[in-house]
Amino acid sequence: MSDKIQDLKNKLIRLTSLDKSFEVFGSESHQYRLNPCLSEAEVSQLEAKYKVTLPTEFCNFLLNVGNGGVGPGYGLIGIDSVELSKMEILGLDFLSLPFCLNEEWNDLDLLQTSNGDAPNAYYDPKLVQGSLLVAEYGCGIEARLVITGEQAGKIWIDDRVGEGGIYPLTCHCAAFFHDDPDIEDNLYESVEEVKEALTFYEWYDNWLNRSISQVVQLM
């Protein structure tokens, strides 16, 4: 087990012991429980079925920490059979196709584009192909782990339900999502930031650090 994964486990233990009254956003949903880890055989079978290689940090988490449960938003989804079933409707190659974005995207003109009874082009699933849903922040906002393409291993936000588009989850975004989900968006609009998306480990570690800090301040 890597030092990074052990560090996450240590912080999880600390946060769980501190937040007995579930003060952290989403904690009442997961209640600091972890789902059982996957075996190496299970990971290999999944990768073979979907013709992908899972990002190393995510794979190490699945093998050594848990397959979802406690985590950002309403909890880490991990490898979820329900989500995989939804994805398979789009085709078994959905995960293996390259994630097509390298910078934030929000083409609201596509909301006016429709094809008969088909959904508006703005909501085309192809825009998030090559990514896996790993958490939900509420109000339809999804955190997705990119599996393929140049952004592989990074966390992106899909906020098309709120017409916020698709964009990398940066340190700046994490401050918004992990500190106070109810804070006004316009407080962050004018802040310059690096547009680099956080890796899976950086994302999860950011949530742990901010959650621990929040609980300690309340004590």
Rank of each mutant, 00 (worst) to 15 (best):
W156D: 06
K154W: 00
D182Y: 14
S131N: 07
A174M: 01
S131H: 11
L133I: 09
V161T: 12
A175N: 07
V161C: 08
F176K: 14
R160C: 10
E150S: 12
A152L: 01
S190N: 13
L187Q: 12
R160P: 12
N186S: 12
V134H: 04
T148N: 09
I183Y: 14
E189M: 06
S190M: 09
A135M: 04
E150D: 09
V191Y: 13
P181R: 07
G164R: 03
T148K: 14
D158P: 07
C173I: 03
T148I: 01
A175T: 06
I147E: 04
T170M: 04
N186D: 06
E163D: 06
D158Y: 10
V191R: 14
L169M: 07
R144I: 01
Q151W: 02
V146F: 03
I157H: 11
D159F: 12
S190T: 13
G153P: 07
I147H: 10
E142D: 05
G130W: 00
Y167C: 02
P168W: 00
D185W: 09
Q151Y: 03
E193I: 00
K154S: 06
L145D: 02
D159E: 07
F177Q: 01
E136G: 15
Q151N: 10
D159A: 15
A143G: 11
D182N: 15
I166N: 05
C139Y: 08
T148F: 01
L169A: 08
D159V: 01
L132C: 13
E142L: 11
V134S: 03
E142W: 12
E150A: 10
E150P: 07
A175E: 04
E196T: 15
V191M: 06
D179L: 06
N186Q: 11
R144P: 01
D158Q: 09
G149M: 05
D179N: 13
R144M: 01
G162F: 00
K195M: 07
S131T: 08
L187K: 15
S190Y: 15
V194F: 11
E136H: 14
L187F: 15
W156N: 13
H178K: 03
L145H: 11
T148V: 00
R160M: 05
A143C: 04
Y137G: 09
E196F: 09
G153C: 02
H172V: 00
H172Y: 04
A174Q: 02
S131Q: 05
A135Y: 04
E196R: 15
S190H: 12
I166T: 09
H172S: 04
G140V: 06
G165D: 04
G138H: 11
L133M: 08
N186Y: 14
A197G: 14
D180W: 00
G153S: 03
A174C: 03
